Structure formats: C-alpha cells, structure tokens
Amino acid sequence: MNRAIHSLTAVLALAGTLACAAPPPHVTQVPIACTQVSRETCAIAGRLGRGINLGNMLDAPREGDWGVKLEPAYIDLAADNFNTVRLPVRWSNHAAPTADATLDPKFAARVDQAVDALLARGAYVILDVHHYTQISGDPPHPHEQTVDPAVVDQRLINLWKQIATRYRDRPPRLIFELLNEPHGRLDGEPWNRLAAQALAAVRESNPTRTVMIGPGGWNSVDELPRLRLPADRNLIVSIHNYDPFDFTHQGIDYLAKPFPVGTRCCDAGQRRKVEDALDKAQRWSQAHGVPLHLGEFGAFEKADIDSRAAYTRLVRDEAEKRGIGWTYWELASTFGVWSPANGQWVEPLRRALLD
C-alpha cells in the first residue's frame, strides 16, 4: 500500500528488552489446499491465522518520512494480539544502486532488530521487498534513489541472495515474500520469469523455507490465472484485495483520480465483490493445490468508522470461511487499527479484526 500522511506523537528507539510471549492461537478453521506443497508449508499456512502489517515504517523511503517509525510498542502490540506480523521493507532504497545491490549494513541491522524481536515474541513474520517502485515502471517516491534500468531486475535477485543468507538460521516462522504487488512492466510472463530467478537465489541458502509469491496486477486475484509458479513445494500465494475500491480508498489525495468521501459499506453489491473475489481465489487454490494468504486489506481513515468496521469484519469472516489467513493493512497509520495520536486502539476496528 501507499504512504502514510499521519504524524506520530512519540518516537522511541527500537532497542529494548522484550519479554517472550506467544501470540493468541487464532488459526484457520477449514481445510486449505495443500496437495502441491510440503507438510510443513501447509502447516504454516494454517497457522498464520490473523495478522497485521507494520506498514509505512521500514517501507518508507527513509524511516519516518511517512509519519511513523517502528517503535518497540508497535512490536508489542502486533505480537501480543496477532499470530502473524508482515514486515514491509524498502530494501532497494538502502542498497547500492549497482547490480550487486550491496545492502547498507546499518539499515540491515535495523531490520534484524525488528525481525528478531518479533520472532522472540512467538510471531510468524512475513518479510518482503516492498516499494521497489522502479521495478514495476513507476515513478520514484520522494527521497527514493533511481538506478540504471539495465540493473533493476538483477538487483532484486541480488537483494534476495543477501537477505536469504542473512536470515538462513532463523526459525521456519520467518517467511520470505519476494515482492510486494508486482504490476505494470512485470505483469504476466516478466514476473513469472523474475520470480523464478529470485526464488532460485533464496534456495541457494534456504532450500526449504516457506516463500510467498503473489500474482501481478498489484497481487490481484484477477491475475492468478497468469501466475506460473516455479516447481517448488514450499510456496504460499499472497493475494491483496481492497474491493470495493471506491470505498476503501476514498479521500486519498495521492491517487491519480481521487475518490470522493462519503461512500458507505457494505450493501449487497459490495459484499458480493468481496465474496466473489475470494471465491475466485479459493477455486484457483484448490485447482493448483497451493495455499493462499490475504496479505493486505483495509480501508482509509476518511471513510466513516462504522463502515470501516463493517467492511473489516466482512473481509475477515469471508477469508476465514475459506481457510485463508490474513494480515490487515495496517497497524498505526492512515488505515490503522491503532491511533498513535490517542495512544489507543481504534476500537471498532480492533473488535472487527479480533473479537
């Protein structure tokens, strides 16, 4: 998802001792498609359950650019209340602009702290490459470096060689996600080819770690038919769904054509959009024998709070009916379930996700 525009009132360092505690045992309740994956990856898919994105923190061009930093309190909130934490990271902006994409050691150590703190709390952690805008052909965000187009794809492969090697000794609860929301120039076969190369780079050091791959079109369910997975028994497919889009994205001023504020949710037609998308995804999963994860859904803060809660509960329930674990977008920014300004849960959203 796109950037935060909400300011944060308190800024703390990530350092600090965190007590170990297992997250709530929320698991999916119905069988999931696993005929083409290993027993361990199938078990992980079923245990991901209810999750949260720590969005707009380490995926901003520079941490803090989008109004929120990764604080110890956020790690506590995420790990204490959710099974799974998705950690979006803009690695590409903290690496050499050359094909080797050598990582900035200071930034990589910052990510290490977050990953290890979450793992110490017993959470499943999904670590991705997020907001590598140039790879999909998008214009750069402010403060984002650009590179020679000839090395864009190779940098992703070399980023994964380094990331995978760095975390190869972490427990299986750490899951790699190759790229957030491929789209544009990557749609179709270009992404199929590049994903296979990036996965091969991971497999050099992590032969059996569970890896997530999403379809093109911003991880769209409609792009699943064009997704051609590598022959690998440790994969989960990640989908995103923000339908009805005119509701979930109303009032966002950085869209090319902003949606007006005032759309409510959820009438019969809106419910059908959510249900149809997840039905389509479930049919694909069953036909291919690969489990799914709903990596993002959520509604921007300009929508009325009752509608946001109704939408959130709808998507949560429909995903869980189909045995699909999820990670809500996101904890503490403009789609957030926690208010940094008030220092408390946005309670209708918390109930919709967890009660």
Rank of each mutant, 00 (worst) to 15 (best):
R90G: 02
R173L: 10
P105M: 02
R170Q: 10
D59C: 10
E330V: 09
N83A: 15
R226E: 05
L58V: 04
N241S: 15
H249M: 13
H293R: 00
A287Q: 05
H130K: 04
A277Y: 12
Q286G: 05
R168G: 01
N206H: 06
D187V: 03
A195Y: 11
L18F: 14
P25M: 13
N83Q: 10
N56V: 05
W338M: 01
T133Q: 13
A231Y: 06
V125M: 05
A108M: 03
P215H: 04
V152M: 14
D116V: 07
G46Y: 07
P149N: 11
S339Y: 03
T28Q: 14
Y311F: 14
G216P: 05
G55T: 08
D76H: 15
R62N: 07
H130D: 04
C265W: 00
H183F: 12
V290C: 08
I32N: 03
G295V: 01
G217S: 05
R209D: 02
H131L: 06
L127Y: 08
D317V: 12
I157T: 13
R233F: 00
A60H: 09
F259M: 11
Q36R: 15
T210G: 02
P230H: 09
E189F: 04
P31G: 13
L294T: 04
S92L: 00
I163L: 08
N219V: 08
T102R: 15
A117Q: 11
F300S: 06
F82M: 15
P215E: 00
T334I: 08
F297T: 14
V115C: 05
L127S: 10
I239E: 00
P215A: 08
D355Y: 00
G298A: 01
P149S: 12
H288W: 03
V237R: 06
T102S: 14
Y242S: 10
A15C: 09
H26P: 13
V221M: 10
C34I: 09
A79V: 08
A19D: 08
L179T: 02
V211T: 12
S307N: 03
I5G: 07
E320G: 05
N83G: 12
R264N: 09
H94Y: 10
P149Q: 12
G336H: 05
W91K: 05
V115D: 11
D243V: 12
G46C: 06
A95W: 06
S92P: 00
K161E: 09
N53H: 04
V111E: 02
